[in-house]
């Protein structure tokens, strides 16, 4: 359902000024009529759940294990692994989030105050690659030649807790800053629309009772403080709809 080539014009435009290399056709003159036609909107990409676009198998196994400790499976529902958080992060790192294409990335990059915010020279794709390599080396060299995903749950929790506090001692890793990035992305993967590869079966939305992309809740104005009972819907509907069609 990807629209015509013009439908992605605003994505292209933002990078065009940076690159100054696209043809002049991007700039537009508008007069006389609103410049759109039906079906021009571009939906989010519909992602295949299979395979990895950015991670190696080993990286994917480590991130899957991390996601499953940050959001463990329990009686309240699926954990980060089953929810597809690693798939979500993989797809994000393969796209404009991973490359920081939309952000201001010109130097210099001196250390700033906390109030000055993000001053990372390297985009998330490189930060993940280097951090996962450092964590793998740590597990191999300091934890008996193992991998993160073969540590016990207790050991995984202890390592993540230490990273959060900045006391993991993992060589070559700014552990605290990577932990924040990881936690943010795992939570995004658990609660974002399933179209992005995580939140499978809408487990994140079911955990809190968020009905998703329903877009009309006026009926609830007559039922204040009453439970909302309809199941959640994503931008592409619900898994049950798709299954029924098969």
């Amino acid at each position: 359902m990807r629209g015509r080539s013009t439908s992605r014009r605003h994505l292209l435009a933002a990078t065009a000024l940076v690159a100054c290399s696209l043809p002049a056709a991007q700039a537009r003159t508008i007069r006389g009529a609103l410049p759109w036609s039906a079906g021009e909107a571009y939906p989010p990409p519909r992602l295949s759940a299979a395979g990895w676009l950015f991670f190696t198998e080993a990286e994917a196994a480590a991130v899957t294990a991390m996601a499953n400790r940050l959001i463990p499976p329990d009686e309240l529902g699926a954990g980060g692994a089953e929810a597809g958080c690693a798939t979500f992060i993989d797809r994000q790192l393969a796209g404009s989030f991973g490359t920081s294409d939309w952000l201001y990335m010109q130097g210099p990059f001196p250390a700033g105050t906390p109030q000055q915010g993000l001053q990372e020279e390297h985009p998330p794709n490189r930060r993940y690659r280097e951090a996962l390599a450092a964590i793998a080396a740590h597990c191999r060299e300091k934890m008996g030649g193992r991998l993160f995903h073969t540590l016990s749950s207790q050991e995984q929790d202890a390592l993540l807790t230490a990273m959060e506090a900045g006391t993991s001692g993992i060589a070559g890793l700014r552990d605290k800053s990577f932990f924040e990035l990881l936690l943010q992305n795992v939570m995004e993967g658990y609660f974002a629309d399933p179209a992005y590869g995580g939140n499978r079966e809408m487990v994140g939305w079911k955990l809190v009772g968020f009905p998703g992309a329903r877009y009309d809740f006026r009926e609830m104005l007559d039922r204040l403080d009453q439970p909302y009972t309809d199941p959640p819907v994503g931008l592409f509907g619900r898994p049950a709809w798709t299954r029924a069609a098969q």
């Binding site: 609103l34 877009y215 931008l235």
Partner: peptide
């Protein structure tokens, strides 16, 4: 205008606008 033209039907219809991540 330095940004793109934007309109309801093309850029944020209900089919795509309820997307917190994006």
């Amino acid at each position: 205008e330095r940004g793109p033209w934007r309109d309801t039907a093309a850029d944020f219809p209900p089919a795509t606008s309820a997307d917190e991540l994006r």
